[in-house]
């Protein structure tokens, strides 16, 4: 996993609450055995006017020319709810997003983001609202500093927090499986004490 320390990027405001992972990556694109090829289908039903994905929907925010090259997704509450499909953050990452900001995330989606190196930032509803307002005035660029847990936008600085180990894992690009395999003795000790029925 790539290390995440700081990032500066253009924000695309997606003003929809309860965005589920079916919307992020619809089921017809889950039939892959590889980890690539999802970015082009990100938000497929909103991004394209036709099922085949040949006609771009000019009204969808991500398709507007001023948001070309955006790498920070600004979203509303309960982002990433529904299916546990990790294909959703894979699609978000492959499209070019490094950071997702929302007032709240669904639990599985949040964990999936961290596991692949995307930074999900929880801000308060009021802070998110402020960013949406600023974004409506002119395209917004933000600076994210993970070691200092700050998101800066012009004169404004917002603090955010992550669980200690998740922060460490992102900053250091930890191979989580390898990390746990170093604890094999502890796992074996645990197994030795398990009841027979377990």
């Amino acid at each position: 996993m790539e290390k995440f320390t700081t990032h500066t990027g253009l924000v695309v405001p997606l003003d929809i609450a309860n965005v589920d992972t079916d919307q992020i990556i619809p089921k017809q694109f889950l039939q892959k055995t590889e980890r690539v090829g999802f970015g082009v289908h990100l938000f497929h039903e909103r991004r394209y006017l036709d099922h085949e994905g040949t006609q771009v929907n000019p009204d969808f925010v991500m398709n507007k020319p001023e948001y070309k090259g955006a790498s920070v997704l600004l979203a509303r509450e309960n982002f990433g709810c529904g299916s546990s499909r990790e294909h959703a953050p894979w699609a978000i990452e492959e499209y070019g997003f490094k950071v997702v900001i929302a007032p709240s995330f669904a639990d599985i989606f949040y964990g999936n983001c961290i596991n692949i190196g995307i930074l999900p930032i929880r801000l308060t509803e009021a802070e998110v609202e402020q960013l949406f307002k600023l974004s409506a005035e002119a395209p917004l660029t933000v600076d994210v500093d993970l070691p200092n847990n700050t998101l800066t936008c012009g004169d404004l600085t917002f603090k955010f927090s992550l669980n200690e180990f998740q922060q460490y894992s992102l900053e250091n690009g930890v191979d989580s499986v390898g990390w746990t395999l170093n604890k094999l003795d502890k796992i074996k000790d645990f197994e030795a004490k398990m009841p027979a029925w377990q």
Binding site: S84, E86, I116, S176, V177, L181
Partner: peptide, 21 residues
């Protein structure tokens, strides 16, 4: 019992454990 992402599926395969808050 809970749902997990594919990175976690890999973690369970390799270690029979998961990290959970």
């Amino acid at each position: 019992a809970f749902g997990i992402g594919t990175s976690e599926v890999e973690h369970v395969f390799a270690t029979q454990t998961l990290r959970q808050n």
